[in-house]
Design a binder for these strands. Structure first.
Lengths: 256, 256
DNA sequence: GTCTTCAAAG
DNA sequence: CTTTGAAGAC
């Protein structure tokens, strides 16, 4: 079973690339982030045409997440559903083939100590609470998303430059660790403890050609799924060519 | 020798369609209108890559005309060059294979009797003056362009609806006739006196699917070229599909 | 750089 | 419907 995550940076602007990628990569499940459109504007028709069901939590202009799957996702939950008044469409979960799948778009955080940064740390605290409330560590859970946090020094192209910058501050990395401490494993890092691969490159300053990126898109697995993990990679090719998303898809393979 | 005219409605937005059309239609000369970009922003590289030289008279946002040709255009003149202070980039002429080629984007005219309408009639008067000053009726001249005038009742989809509307008022049609009276022949109408074909359809109101258009893009020939005219047509296919221009290309064939 | 929104123009 | 430009986000 192949599960992928991709921040498409506008599902409408990326419609053709999305369809092409689905056809070539053939994931069983794809977690999408930054749809940047409402449910009404989501291209359900072309996704269906490509052979996928879609559970969507859209929002105008910003955010928006979805779970695409070859079999119909069930028990769809939109948002963290913790009673907090939060208008951002950043979280959706659904069950696909007996696995609970999450598609998450973590807040970016803007500047350190800005309101957005505070919201980001709080959002991570709420996410840990979501896991504690809804799941046991031995549930079958895969969480894919744009987490807007590089977990370790190896995950940024230049530690000196990233030191203290949003996406790489100690407080953010700690917040992510607190979530993982529930019992989640970073699929890519599990398979490749020492490999440096990035999933996001700024559109500006030729960051992609220079390969100056960061790894902020992750797939997390609960413990019972870790022994089934056989492959995980970043599809760097998808970042190339005309009008790419600034993020590349990340995918993993689970054996039966 | 194949000569074509096409209002591309932004040469940058239509870059890929332009290249595809050049490759399939293989005109020796293409007159372009509504480039909507400056000379600095004109995609010289992709045009060259497609096998064409380009003489360009660009303008930011509005207007902009060019002559593309498989052999290098010489003696390029930008504008009507009649001493009138006119900032609109609506006219360019150049010599290609011994033929003087004009690419013209006539003013639209907005509402009847508006300043734009007065400017349009005056522009046509200046154009006739340009011909009188620079040419003899037996020169080899081809003028392609978006003339924003439907010459005859057959050239609009509904005469009753178009009666008195800009593009079809008697004063505009007379202004165009005054230009043609210099000694120019409408290539399409010469070959097909009774055929109704359109070259422009409004983007709105499903005008193209309903084929409610007008013929305002024309190729005019001086007398010595008329006996050499073997074919002329509108490429209606180019108006179809995703992100078309609102105009279709018009082309003609001259035998040697 | 590339996306969104909006207004103005055709 | 499709383009342009501007502003704001990342």
């Amino acid at each position: 079973m192949r599960i992928a995550t991709w921040n498409v940076n506008s599902v409408r602007a990326r419609q053709q690339r999305l369809v092409n990628w689905l056809k070539s990569a053939q994931p069983d499940v794809l977690c999408l982030q930054e749809l940047k459109c409402t449910d009404a504007d989501f291209p359900f028709d072309v996704v269906k045409e490509a052979g996928y069901f879609a559970a969507v939590h859209g929002q105008k202009t910003y955010n928006g997440v979805a779970i695409l799957a070859k079999t119909e996702p069930t028990d769809v939950i939109r948002g963290l559903s913790d009673g907090v008044d939060d208008t951002h469409a950043r979280f959706i979960s659904a069950t696909v083939n007996g696995i609970r799948v999450v598609s998450a778009y973590a807040p970016n955080g803007q500047q350190v100590d800005s309101p957005a940064y505070v919201y980001k740390l709080e959002w991570y605290r709420r996410l840990r609470n979501y896991l504690d409330t809804r799941h046991k560590p031995d549930d079958l859970v895969v969480m894919g998303g744009d987490w807007n946090i590089a977990p370790d020094p190896i995950d940024v192209y230049d530690v000196a430059q990233w030191e203290g910058q949003t996406l790489f501050t100690l407080r953010e990395r700690d917040a992510l660790q607190q979530v993982c401490a529930f019992g989640l494993t970073d699929a890519f890092r599990k398979l490749y403890p020492d490999v440096q691969k990035f999933s996001w490159w700024d559109y500006r300053m030729l960051m992609f050609p220079k390969n100056k990126g960061v790894r902020i898109d992750h797939l997390f697995l609960t413990a019972p799924l870790v022994p089934r993990l056989t492959a995980c990679d970043v599809d760097r090719e998808e970042r190339k060519g005309q009008q790419p998303s600034d993020h590349a898809p990340v995918w993993l393979e689970l054996k039966d």
